[in-house]
Structure formats: C-alpha cells, structure tokens
C-alpha cells in the first residue's frame, strides 16, 4: 500500500476529485440512460476510476498520448475533457466532443491527446504503437498509454503489436485493465495463463501486476514504467487489476458473478481507499470531502443541463467529417 505522506495535499485532492467526478458523471449518465435520454451501448467505468486517474496523472499530455477501448468516459475525463462535451456526446448532440458522431464508445479529445474511444476489441493496440512509432521517428520525448481490457489480450493484434513494439523498442505502455470479466466471461475460463505479465515477458517486454484499486500505487507504478520506457528504451506491459461494479454495459444484469463478490470489491473502493488514507493522515476533513463531492455532482448535473439544451446536429451533418 502506498503512503500519502510524501505527496502534496493539492495533488491528492486532484486525484480524489477526478475519481469522484468520473463516478458522479457516470452515475448521472446511468440515470439518464434509464430515462432513455441516452441510447446504444454505454459501458460504465465505475469501480475502475483509480486506473485511469492514477496513470494519466503521471503524464504530460502535451507530448504523451492516451488511447483506450470503448469503456472510455473515465480516461477522457482524466485527460481533461470538458464534462459538458462528454455528456452532450452521450446525448448525440452537436456540442458533443465528437459532434454526436461517436457516442459513448468514441470520445476523442485531440487537444488533450486523447485518441479514443475505440470500439473493436484490441484493434486500437497497434494504433497506439503507431503513435509511439511517431514519437520515436521524430525523436520526441513522449510516451503512449494504451488501455484495453482482459478480453482484448487474446486478440491477434495484441500479440503482433507487442512483438513489433519490442523489436523497434517503441515508447508505449500497454495497460491491461483486468476487471476479471471479458463481458460475461471470467478471464480464467479463457486464458491459458492467469498472470498476464507473462504475456509481456514472452515478448521480452518488462511487465508486472499492479493493484488498480489504489490510485497512488497506479500512479507510482506508471511513473516507474515511464522511467523504464525512457531510460531503458523498451515498451512496458502493466496488468492493472481492477473491478467494475456495473455490468459489461447498461443492458447486462451481470448474473455471472455473486453479490458477495461485488460487495467484496465495493469494500476496496478506490475512492474510499484514498479518502481513508488522506483522512488518517490528517489531509482531508469530512467537510472537504463533502465539498468536493458536491462540486462533482454539480458538474455532472450541469453537464446534463448543457446536453439537454444543446442542438441536435443538422441532417446535412451526416455528410461531414468523413474526408479531410
């Protein structure tokens, strides 16, 4: 367990607030989905917030890049996406981050170097390596963080990409967010190994497991990985173990796991863990926590108001944004 004592209070407050913002934003999104204001697939990140927040906190998004799969709301907000644009995208409005063309699965924020929001399981893994190829080609200083789930790790392109990332030593950190279920399938039922770091070492890539419920551990291990990428000139694979409380998507009642299992993880909630550590260290009062939480709820509420008041895209927009 990482200690909070070595960190500035403002940094810890930032992590706490980002996790709470993602949580409150998605709770609101789920509520609006229930009211049928949002349609399609909506994959919630609730429970996994520490992974995106802790790792992205280690980046400089002027030179670093982030790509993730379709469970992308948390990563986008952690990269600094405007929550109004995020909610408006869920509503399919023209003010959405992708002008209502992408929806839940395709949040993009080029200014903050957040390149999706990618819907085909594992297919963005080579894309991430390609962005790292550019960093190396231009002799830049950045790294690429590429997130994907345990379900993606058996796709061919994962293995093809790890091999090429290593032979060219690309500055990319592959982050397998193992939430234990590829949709409804427990990873142990479909994987020949249960420790995914083995899949990195089999390509000569340094790899290790990280506790994804502790935001500070995620932050520190990502920093360590970035240092390794830059100093030892190698890609890195992290298996960050985490847990999603909700189903795979809004339509999934998640009957493949027990209530006890979900309850067990709720007790290791990443927000509660950080809150407790900060409180014990005298870095957070109940009032401060309540104030942050209230602020995040207000931002989520405001994003709904913004989305509802935004315009639908005009019909002719269907012909736009196809060719440059």
């Amino acid at each position: 367990m990482s200690t909070v004592n070595k960190y500035e209070k403002t940094f810890l407050m930032k992590l706490l607030e980002q996790m709470l913002l993602i949580r409150r934003f998605e709770e609101k999104a789920a509520q609006m989905y229930g009211l049928r204001k949002i349609g399609g697939f909506c994959h919630l990140y609730i429970g996994q917030e520490a992974v995106a927040v802790g790792s992205i906190a280690a980046l400089d998004l002027k030179k670093d890049y982030v790509l993730t799969a379709y469970r992308d709301h948390g990563h986008a907000l952690a990269c600094g996406m405007d929550p109004n644009g995020a909610m408006a995208e869920l509503y399919g409005k023209v003010t959405g981050c992708s002008k209502g063309k992408g929806g839940s699965m395709h949040f993009f924020d080029e200014e903050n170097h957040m390149y999706g929001g990618n819907g085909i399981v594992g297919a963005h893994i080579p894309i991430a390596a390609g962005m790292a190829f550019k960093i190396k080609y231009k002799q830049e200083d950045g790294v690429v963080l590429c997130y994907f789930g345990d379900g993606a790790i058996h796709q061919g392109v994962f293995h093809e990409t790890l091999n090429m990332a290593k032979i060219w030593n690309l500055p990319v950190i592959f982050i397998c967010e193992n939430n234990f279920y590829g949709m409804g399938t427990n990873y142990k039922r479909v994987s020949s190994v249960h420790d995914y770091s083995i899949m990195g070492t089999s390509y000569g890539i340094p790899a290790w497991q990280v506790n994804g419920m502790d935001v500070l551990e995620v932050y520190e291990e990502t920093q360590k990985a970035i240092k390794m990428v830059k100093e030892e000139k190698t890609p890195v694979l992290l298996e960050i173990q985490t847990y999603r409380y909700r189903g795979h998507s809004m339509s999934d009642p998640a009957k493949y796991r027990t209530k006890e299992e979900v309850e067990e993880y709720r007790n290791q909630d990443p927000i509660i863990i950080l809150e407790n550590k900060m409180t014990e260290a005298g870095l957070l009062t109940k009032e401060e926590y309540t104030e942050i939480d209230k602020r995040c709820k207000n931002i989520a509420n405001e994003s709904v108001r913004f989305a509802e008041e935004s315009e639908e895209p005009p019909l002719e927009a269907m012909y736009e944004d196809i060719y440059a």
């Binding site: 890049y65 080579p126 390596a129 390609g130 190829f133 550019k134 080609y137 061919g156 091999n163 090429m164």
Partner: peptide, 15 residues
Amino acid sequence: AGFTGIGIGAAMAGL
C-alpha cells in the same frame, strides 16, 4: 493487421 494498424496510428499522430 499489426503493421497496418501501426501505420494508421503513425498517420493519426502526424506522419
């Protein structure tokens, strides 16, 4: 699939 995807990523990043 892998090297085609790497090309696409490099293009998205400006090459």
